[in-house]
């Protein structure tokens, strides 16, 4: 666009590195507005005719009894535990990957050990049977 709008080419975006995070915050506000505005609008214009049947929990013909907040399989919880361990470690690998080309052999070996520990954790879960859905 520099050929048509010379003034646009005059600023360098590198001046404002910290301000990029500010733009992120603006984007956050726009995104929240994008989600909240339709709900508000609908609350204003949509009709409201509540009735007892309509407001009861969905069920295929039967009347539901009690709350749905019941105990569920522990396996879901085990997956969540495994996730916490793995996800945090994955984040540690990213900076290493980005810096890889300039790193020494020691860094390669260290990360090899780290990935091995990760694989060992996976193997442990596998042998313990956590990963197979029973």
């Amino acid at each position: 666009m520099g050929d048509v709008f010379p003034q646009l080419a005059a600023i360098s975006p590198d001046d404002a590195h910290g301000a990029r995070y500010l733009l992120l915050a603006v984007m956050g506000v726009v995104a929240v507005g994008f989600a909240v505005a339709p709900l508000l609008l609908s609350a204003l214009v949509a009709p409201r005719k509540p009735s007892e049947i309509k407001q009861s929990p969905f069920e295929c013909g039967l009347e539901s009894k009690g709350d749905a907040w019941v105990q569920f399989r522990v396996q879901y919880y085990l997956y969540a535990l495994a996730f916490v361990i793995f996800d945090v470690e994955v984040v540690f690998i990213y900076p290493w990957a980005a810096a890889f080309t300039n790193l020494s052999t020691g860094a390669l070996v260290a990360m090899g050990v780290f990935v091995l520990l990760l694989a060992e954790g996976l193997a442990y879960l596998w042998i313990k049977g956590v990963l197979s859905w029973k």
Partner: peptide
């Protein structure tokens, strides 16, 4: 259509 549909919050 979606805007004009009844937006009810179930009681439970």
């Amino acid at each position: 259509k979606v805007l004009l549909k009844e937006d009810f919050t179930p009681a439970h």
